[in-house]
Design a protein around this nucleic acid. Structure first.
Lengths: 247, 247
DNA sequence: ACAAAAGTGTTTTTTATACACCCATGC
DNA sequence: GCATGGGTGTATAAAAAACACTTTTGT
């Protein structure tokens, strides 16, 4: 991918260049469709700084490892999940404030590339095998986070809302068969309450033509049983890359 | 900004971590409103690799320098411009393919953070004082670019199109006073020809209410003189952060 | 029977789109 | 006058939004 137009042989300014370690931080969202809560995955730090604070799962990039590979590696240590598609979010790389020890800017700097994803809640198994606690936290109810991870989560949430509106990510997160109300609740959970009338939401989604009625019904407590639908990827294919709006 | 949850004291895996130099590459767009051409700023490389190829202006990040600062610094060396607002585009950081010299992954890696901006053509003065040629190139007519800069330009163009549709960047690029046709031509130049009827474009923009008629007229050759408008930032303020669509 | 949830339809209001047509100026 | 570009309006279609109403179940 992208490289630079400078090179090690460009020795003139070499001495003053910054040395970096590069890390990746993952903002992994999930929705518990039974309680309708939006969660983000956090780990409990076991070392300073920010010992005892919750933080986004991340790691430093190793030799020969791509950024994405590093992101996937950290997650593989903490959870088992199917269909994980990470998307790059933002790169934070301000120099750390000079600690005042007179070493100047000569020390190693840290740069953080953040990735985000939305995963199906039921497909995730959190791994307790590591000594580092891992847990879902409701985004509306986050503890104080290490570093500026709270901002990163906010940034990721905004990106998630946007994605939801113009791409069919919702169907990667719902079970294979779902009711239209499930779908509606999911949108409400992520986008907030007042984004559309349920009745109009129904009509709009059905008219798009990529929701196939399976014929099966499901009854949840009182009330009329709902039809179970599935996402028809083939019917959706021609709409790909179109600027269609889901809500 | 963002940092990591690991730290130099985490020495266990230290040995296998990658060392990075970090560079920034700028995708600077501009529109020549007289010829209606979309340009991107390129520099001619004077050193290998890709000697003699055109490339995006970039530099390596120095000690104590933020990513953005580095991006602005490179540009300051190559052009004088007012109102330059860089926006982060993407971070490319795949490990370079092993050169096969047996050094393994132990060498320094390069990571590129790209930024993009749209600048007012008339506000730019290209600086020839440097030994490196700098020039505008039409995006529809690019020479072969160094590294994968062609992809970065494509990526930036897509981002520019999106920005144009939901934010008032166009007015940062037009002169303070402009005709509605100027505005229309600008949109055509960036988005491509068939995006909207001129007449409907007019009506839509005027109804939004943040274009103030200055009362002045300008006559350009034959035809009825056009009204000069200006962007009314105050009238636009309440629409900020709204998902309004410009076209 | 009644409440609850699913699903359908109707009405009203905006937007989008495609034009036709009038206006003011240079030549 | 008439070609040229600026500017206004209209007619049609589509979409968004609000909400009334019917259907089918559990209790």
């Amino acid at each position: 991918m992208g490289r630079l137009q400078f090179h090690p042989s460009d020795a003139a300014s070499m001495t003053s260049l910054a040395h970096f370690k590069v890390g990746v931080d993952n903002v992994i969202f999930s929705v518990d469709t039974t309680t309708n809560r939006l969660f983000v995955l956090l780990v409990l730090r076991q070392e300073p700084p920010f010992l005892g604070y919750w933080a986004l799962p991340g790691t430093l990039v190793r030799q020969g490892e791509s950024l994405e590979a590093a992101a996937y590696r950290t997650l593989a240590e903490k959870l088992q999940v199917q269909n994980l598609y990470l998307e790059q979010l933002y790169t934070f790389g301000a120099p750390e404030p000079d600690p005042g020890n007179g070493t100047g800017g000569d020390c190693v700097r840290y740069l953080s590339v953040s990735y985000f994803a939305l995963v199906r809640y039921d497909d995730v198994h959190l791994l307790a095998m590591t000594d580092q606690p891992v847990a879902w936290h409701g985004v509306e109810d986050l503890p104080p986070l290490a570093f500026d991870h709270a901002q990163i989560v906010t940034y990721g949430h905004r990106r998630l809302c946007n994605k939801l509106e113009y791409s069919p990510v919702a169907f990667e997160v719902l079970p294979a068969q779902f009711t239209l109300n499930d779908l509606y609740q999911l949108y409400c959970t992520i986008l907030g309450e007042q984004f559309s009338d349920y009745s109009n939401f129904r009509a709009k989604l059905l008219k798009l033509g990529f929701l196939a009625d399976t014929g099966q019904k499901v009854s949840r407590g009182a009330g009329r049983p709902a039809s179970l639908y599935r996402f028809d990827a083939e019917a959706f294919a021609p709409l790909k890359n179109k600027p269609l709006v889901f809500v």
